[in-house]
Amino acid sequence: MFEARMAQAALLKKVLEAVKDLVTDANWDCTSAGISLQAMDSSHVSLVSLLMRKDGFDMYRCDRPISLGINIASMTKIMKCANNNDAVTLRAEDEGDTVVFTFESADQEKVSEFEMKLMDIDSEHLGIPEREHTATVKMPASEFHGICRDLSTIGETVQVSVTKEGVQFTASGDTGKGTITLRNNSSVDEESQQVVITMQEELSLSFALRYLNFFTKATALADSVTLSMTADLPLVVEYRIEDTGYIRYFLAPKIDD
């Protein structure tokens, strides 16, 4: 038996918003530690890795590991039936082929139940090592969102350069070129407004803005986002989900042909 209850449906809605444009179907892997999901986009250019630890739930029970194969669009439709303040419970039998969503209104006067058929999803699991990166940039999530959106109007690719001066985002296209520079401002009082750059050496990498714009759908999940970069390795874009998990996106850099 798997059963997990979260106090606010809003959180699960935000998680779905953060994956639904990138992933069609995915296995939600549930264990006694929590729920995780790993999936590539259909072009296999990027990867999303979600973790929601059990301590982020009001109630959590998972007797044995279970993979819930879910069509993300169907789940999104069901979750739209929940109010943001509803409590939501997910429930699945060990050998079952459905997952049940229960929404309870804050005043407990309304209870809705939706049953969704599970799918058999054959997905390869990739081992993602935790590694030190050459440079990291922590910045307000809304700032990163704005930069990706603005530079998309100029070109398809952004060059991210980290130097002692700060981090520079540059896009160029037929109509011209745009450059946005952020300087380290770790002295700002409000932590969520800080731009914090760590760097072992200067680097410059290029990424497809199309995918970065998909990643910024997670903006509502966190105040800050962290970009981690190492030459010739995938960029990691991480949004922390409170203190109980994260959504991480990995994007292979564009390399000179």
């Binding site: 990027s46 990867l47 081992g127 850099p253």
Partner: peptide, 14 residues
């Protein structure tokens, strides 16, 4: 000209 590589190239299958 720049080339976009696949993400799976960077991680080993489990």
């Amino acid at each position: 000209k720049q080339k976009q590589s696949s993400i799976s190239r960077f991680f080993a299958r489990k």
